[in-house]
Amino acid sequence: MSKVANRLKNVKKAVEKVVHGPTLRTDIKAQGAVAGPPLGPQLGQRGINIAAFCKDFNERTKDIQAGIPLPCRISVRADRSYELVIHQPPTTYFLKQAAGARRGATKAGHDVAGKVTLKHIYEIAKIKSADPPLQEVDLKEICEMVIRTARSCGIQVVRDLDPVEYGEFLAQREEEMNAQDEALAAVREAKLLRTK
Rank of each mutant, 00 (worst) to 15 (best):
I74H: 01
C153I: 08
L39T: 06
Q42F: 05
P163A: 02
A125E: 11
A105F: 11
D138Y: 10
V11E: 15
T117W: 08
I127C: 13
E189T: 07
T26E: 03
M1Y: 11
D111I: 10
A108D: 00
A190L: 09
S2R: 13
I50N: 02
L70D: 00
R188Y: 08
K9Q: 12
I86F: 02
P71S: 02
A171D: 07
P132K: 13
P22Q: 11
P71G: 01
T117K: 03
L184V: 01
F94M: 00
V157W: 03
K126G: 06
R80M: 04
E168S: 13
V164R: 03
G154M: 02
I64P: 05
I127V: 15
P38G: 13
A66P: 01
N49Q: 07
K55H: 13
E123K: 10
A186E: 11
Q65I: 05
N10P: 02
R7I: 14
Y82K: 07
G36I: 10
S129Y: 10
K96V: 01
K13C: 07
E165Q: 12
R159W: 02
E16A: 11
D131T: 13
M1H: 11
A35D: 09
C72I: 02
A190K: 13
P90F: 03
V11M: 14
E175H: 12
S129N: 14
P133K: 09
I28K: 05
P132S: 15
Q180I: 07
D160C: 01
A101E: 11
K96H: 07
V158S: 02
E141W: 11
Y166I: 02
A52L: 11
C153L: 15
K9F: 14
L134N: 09
H110T: 12
V4Q: 12
V157K: 01
S129V: 11
F94P: 01
D131W: 03
Y93D: 06
M177G: 00
